[in-house]
Design a protein around this nucleic acid. Structure first.
Lengths: 348, 348
DNA sequence: GACATGAGAGCAACCGTTTGCATTAATTGG
DNA sequence: CCAATTAATGCAAACGGTTGCTCTCATGTC
């Protein structure tokens, strides 16, 4: 069985409180004593029991990260960044996956609440009011969504979508489709708003198809619909859907970008590997992960010990930071000039 | 602040031990009392504090899952399967990522040890002796590696590699390269052994290139070397490397499968999306995840409470299960007949 | 009617830490 | 030389649960 603080105390001939202080408040113990205690601890392979420590300090030094789908290549870079940042601050990240399921999401966050000091909700699918309720139980930072009164880190997909549409307009496209994201996604709503506005401003027609599953399969399934729509360009909710769509279009004999231009969002590693290489809106996922961890830890150090919950949490925080990270359009090979130039009267 | 067991006891007019039993041993409390307690608990939003419970029961109901690289698409399906299986058994999975780093791996497993009931070591890069040492501290199930005396779940990549080589032999290839995996990988060693044997048996020449980083970049970087080697077929350590290699070969003007045949391992979702679609050895990752969780939980229920560690753990377990899961070769479009048939005198 | 039986609930010790307070010894200032 | 301070340590009460034991009844048995 693992050595406890008592074993160390016995071995080094001091009281357990001295051992405790040797680890959590070294300046309070005599250097000589300290080295002796440390030696004994080392000797016995002692490691403080975090659960016991958490019980009394109220700090587990763990943070939870809930993502919609760990298999979606969008998330891993964010997860890694968060883990790295947390590790630097002596925290651990526990990742959990909801399978894009609202129920599982709620269950998980509750289950996690008690064993972490805070939760990062990444691309949550649940309702704002549910999120607010959760935030009363455990400190929360929301990623990829705006929730009033809660700390959020968002990526400016609105601007990204606008840039994408303008890029297409510049290539002469006037009939464009938007492949919508999953129901409940804030990002999907933002994209839709921005894309519609940009299309309208440019005198183009934007057809919205969705909501959809944000996967290759989801994208591939829409190929037929895209063809029937007679559009010359498509902006997809994410790269995965874009890639699936290209695959699907290919099966229908439509070439990208000769027949149809396709733009994705996220700039996942994969988008550089497919052929054609994907034009996409790059989102700063790693930065988002790091920022979110910092915000959560900040929140956490502000909160007086044991003062969690009881409604006050969300409201009386002096400044509830909301960070918007910039996106950038990366033009690669999946977009090109509209097939029959001038047909819509754009140029002349 | 969250309601504690005492609040519930007060509200329902019983002793805390009765509340405790209402949750952890319902049959010991009078049905009437039980419903009253449950009602109060519900009312106060009471949820047992897992940390406190863990302190005395020695069971956290969490299991740790340590993977080499969460961004490698090989892992997510395994993670998801493990999570699902665990959830069914009322356990939670905490995923952590080591970045293919031996040091981080060791740190993580130690940090996790105290807050979980067991650890799943997936594709560990550390030495066998280190793994054994770790297993003395916390129950461990090893995935994707064989460690004597420890429960392991492996995938039969040896057989897979053999099948792959034989497939290539059947297509007339006689000069084949093997792109090795990362240093310390058991899978890489197994593949190498089996592939060498199969090649020798078929009268072919096998060049081993490696060890390498098991990523697209790692694979892409080897294109030049593959060309110089003058081989007509390549078996890569995994799909990611295979895909990277194809990309790299393409940049050098070599076509797959016309000029070079390429086979990967894993059958990640992506391998169906690239062009050409990848021929690959499918590994039963989801099954591995589920099996590993079951084995760990089994282990855990065998162990008498608090009897962890002290050297006995590994040795006196009556049966240390070692499971080998089958792999299967999936032939797609990245393999084809050798360029100049008969040049090596195979057919006639 | 005495007695064993068992169900239901309470009591209190315990899990491994942290931490406010009390105690002691050594150091400083006047 | 005494009082006041400070440094180092010990003491014991928490934290939020679980569980072996004890106690009280109500029931069933002969």
């Amino acid at each position: 069985m693992p050595a406890t603080i008592r074993d160390v105390a016995r071995a080094s001939g001091v009281h357990i409180s001295t051992v405790s202080r040797t680890f959590s408040a070294p300046h309070l113990v005599n250097p000589e004593t300290r080295v002796r205690v440390l030696a004994c601890a080392e000797d016995l392979g002692y490691r403080p029991n975090r659960a016991a420590r958490a019980l009394i300090t109220g700090r587990t030094h763990n943070i939870g990260l809930i993502v919609a789908d760990i298999a979606n290549p969008f998330f891993p870079p964010l997860i890694k960044a968060a883990e790295g940042q947390a590790r630097q601050r002596d925290y651990h990240v526990f990742v959990a996956d909801t399978n894009e399921d609202v129920i599982a999401e709620e269950d998980l966050v509750h289950a996690l609440a008690k064993q972490v000091d805070g939760v990062l909700l990444c691309s949550p699918r649940m309702s704002n009011s549910l999120i607010e309720q959760v935030s009363r139980e455990v400190p929360v930072v929301v990623i990829n969504r705006q929730v009033a009164g809660l700390p959020c880190v968002m990526m400016d997909v609105g601007q990204g979508a606008r840039a994408a549409i303008e890029h297409l307009l510049g290539l002469g496209h006037r009939r464009i489709a938007l492949l919508g994201g999953p129901r409940g996604s804030w990002t999907a709503r933002e994209m839709r708003r921005a894309a519609s506005a940009a299309a309208r401003a440019g005198g183009a027609e934007l057809t919205v198809i969705g909501p959809n599953q944000p996967t290759e399969t989801g994208g591939g399934a829409l190929a037929e619909q895209v063809r029937r729509g007679g559009v010359t360009a498509v902006l997809a909710y994410n790269d995965l859907m874009a890639i699936g769509l290209i695959e699907g279009l290919d099966a229908l004999g439509l070439r990208v970008p000769q027949d149809v231009s396709v733009i994705g969002v996220d700039d996942i590693a994969l988008s550089r590997l497919t052929r054609p290489k994907l034009t996409t809106v790059a989102t700063p996922t790693a930065a988002a992960g790091r920022t979110a961890v910092d915000m959560l830890l900040q929140l956490d150090s502000d909160a007086p010990r044991g003062a969690r919950g009881r409604g006050a949490a969300a409201s009386d925080r002096r400044t509830t930071a909301q960070v918007m990270l910039q996106t950038v359009l990366v033009v690669r090979d999946s977009t090109g000039p509209v097939p029959e130039p001038g047909r819509d009267g754009a140029g002349a």
